[in-house]
Design a protein around this nucleic acid. Structure first.
Lengths: 138, 138
DNA sequence: CCTTGACCTTACCATGATGGGAAGGTCTAT
DNA sequence: ATAGACCTTCCCATCATGGTAAGGTCAAGG
């Protein structure tokens, strides 16, 4: 099968398949006489694995590690779990960060009349002119 | 004051100050005879505004809009509130996405023995071999 | 046999926001 | 005068992805 079909079946764009090959995440496939890349079901399976890992927010580097462990039949599941746990922690840190932003902004939006007058607590906060920087006592 | 001091006082790196100037977010400052950029308290105030907006997750583009509104004394606060509200919605979408990832991964990690044996539900999920893709009924 | 359109190939550029470094000029304190 | 800390511009790298351009290939149909 050609790269376009592999892309369709895996959900990974042809562009990205070539990229993954270039950075060594997947091995170069066979080529036809006319230099077309040829993929089989196994390659598509690997691409699906990659797609799923990326969807779950693993970086390409983490995905490479998971892929290595997947191919290693003797690996310990503990290793995989460590990668996943570390990733969960990173995700949670990011979530907390975003939630902090939402909290601050929500507070400001609530304080803002949102009318036609120029007075605006949101800008005042950004400018650092007013005393309160962030919701403290709400 | 030179760019280094402006950087210290605003929390924006000298590198980024030059970048913001390059992309037109801030206007080019005066220069000394020896071509050094010169900043005053007003410029630092603008940089602090930018820093705060970026910290709250506004893109540079959104920051530019907010900056424009800040400088416009006649603007309506409604405009500012709209930008902030839109941004909050985007942040919340992102949070929900990350939470979805965490949920799926947590489920998988719980199912994984994490011992020295090669059996690993996490890899099984990534590979798409098992029936359940994602916690459905848990 | 030839054309058309869909596909493939490589190579280069762009994104967004930031950091790193090199090569060279300037300023300040000793 | 010299050392060291600063400044200048210019180029490159990141991370994952998309776009585009120029050219080769293939299958179907006239």
């Amino acid at each position: 099968m050609n790269i376009g079909q592999a892309a369709d079946q895996s959900g990974v764009s042809a562009k990205m398949i070539r990229y993954y090959e270039q950075i060594g995440l997947i091995s170069p496939p066979l080529r036809t006489d006319s230099n077309y890349r040829v993929y089989g079901p196994d390659e598509v399976h690997v691409l699906r694995f990659i797609k799923r890992a990326r969807t779950l927010g693993f970086s390409v580097e983490e995905t490479a590690a998971l892929l290595g462990l997947w191919k290693d039949r003797t690996r310990a599941s503990a290793e995989v779990r460590d990668i996943a746990s570390t990733h969960i922690a990173a995700l949670e840190t990011k979530i907390a960060e975003l939630q902090g932003m939402v909290k601050t902004l929500s507070h400001l939006v609530h304080c803002c009349a949102g009318d036609n007058r120029p007075d605006c607590p949101i800008l005042d906060d950004l400018a650092g002119t007013s005393a309160q920087q962030t919701p403290k006592g709400h």
